[in-house]
Design a protein around this nucleic acid. Structure first.
Lengths: 238, 238
DNA sequence: CGACTAGTTGACATGAATCAAAACCTGTGG
DNA sequence: CCACAGGTTTTGATTCATGTCAACTAGTCG
């Protein structure tokens, strides 16, 4: 009981060496599972019984209309958690874009771990805030950006995911043009044409369809409709 | 101290008559503030120092590109909380669409209350999950739906927000056509034309620009691209 | 009543979708 | 090593939905 009391205090900073009790830690003992490229980890509307940690590969998250029209809400990469934002049902379908290795944890366990630890609670809240921020960015892209701005934004985001040096070797685009199109609310043809256009402008160079070199990040950012990033939103009002 | 200990146990179900210790309860003692229609509660990129409870009125949440293009990510109504999904900065601008009455709470207090109570933590997580689900729905709308489907979806959602009987008196659209257009990724002209079209089809009737009667919810749902709601996503794969 | 703003309608332009075909990969088998 | 099959990506020609620009109308507030 005394121990209980001693672990209670609010500010926990002191007793964690670098980073213990992180969400990733919950998956430590779990067995590794694998998925072929194209297979699904879960489907939209499935009961959301598990939470997943992506160890290796790339996953697309998508939802679809009855007639097959599809929206890819995002992609997930090694280290990311999947399904943390679900309640009882899966919000989206998760498909392996590359061969995947992952671990799984029963949602019950995940939830009780989060409920038991304020630190985990905070980490989860942070993750969800980030997802929400990304979702809002993406709504702006889908609702208001031109095809060129969308593709440029996408390539730029892909480049920024990589450590600077890795970028020298080119940005790998694991997903198909169809996935990119469904992510950007365009058709494959438009994605293809737009990439050709960006290539023509000298902002990027291609090495096969799946590898891009960003030659001129500044120009790409400009084409992406990014603000030169000075004034506040308040100042920018017309 | 004994009292402290007695309030500690994890499963609190027993000591709450109907619903105490909910997030809304945190705002109970707070003074009511007011905002004229058109005024902003906070701006994109402002430091996120407070969390708000909307008591009365309607608020639009939006982000903007440097050149003024705008995306309204959603609307908030009485009872809703605002700013719960922010970290250190506001993700979006919140503007009063109707005169607003609201209460505010320092984020610090909000966060510590949430950290202290697993029940509040769960409630907050639930709210954020719902926001995320709404965001994904909206991405599908923006990326893949036609103008008609977008407007029909919007009107349907507005109608469904109201209790059934209230619907008889018509669905009030507090926001301007510009707000609707920015929400749906369209222009005001297209919104206007599309509403006219829906009116022509007999699905809706207008009473002034700000009040809609949904005459045929089934037809409207069909025009909105909603599935007749039978098969699972798994079954619907082509 | 008049002025102002919001909303609607019309004519026309255009960016992206669609339909179609060619080029490019990647792996398989001779 | 080459030929071929099946898939993905690119390119081309054309169409169409939505955007743009402009005028008109309907509320609203002084």
């Amino acid at each position: 009981m005394i121990v209980m009391l001693r672990t209670e205090p609010r500010d926990e900073g002191w007793r964690r060496p670098v980073r213990d009790a992180c969400l990733a830690g919950l998956f430590l003992g779990r067995p590794l599972e694998v998925l072929e490229s194209g297979e699904a980890l879960f489907f939209e509307q499935d009961p959301a019984d598990h939470v997943f940690q992506l160890v290796d590969g790339v996953v697309s998250l998508s939802r679809a209309l009855a007639d097959g029209r599809r929206s890819v809400t995002g992609f997930r990469y090694p280290g990311d958690l999947l399904g943390t934002g679900f309640q009882d049902r899966c919000l989206c379908t998760a498909e392996a874009v590359l061969p995947v290795r992952h671990r799984r944890l029963a949602r019950r366990l995940f939830q009780s771990a989060v409920a038991d630890s304020p630190a985990l609670g905070r980490e989860l809240q942070g993750l969800m805030c980030a997802e929400l921020a990304a979702a809002e960015d993406h709504m702006l892209l889908l609702g208001r950006k031109s095809a060129q701005e969308r593709v440029a934004s996408f390539l730029l985001a892909a480049a920024r995911r990589l450590p600077c040096e890795a970028g020298r070797a080119g940005v790998p685009l694991a997903m198909t043009r169809q996935d990119i199109a469904d992510h950007l609310g365009l058709t494959i043809e438009t994605v293809s044409r737009t990439i050709t256009l960006l290539r023509g402008s000298g902002a990027i160079v291609l090495a096969g369809a799946q590898r891009v070199f960003v030659r001129d990040p500044g120009r790409l950012a400009a084409l992406a409709g990014e603000t030169p990033d000075t004034g506040s939103a308040r100042a920018a009002r017309r």
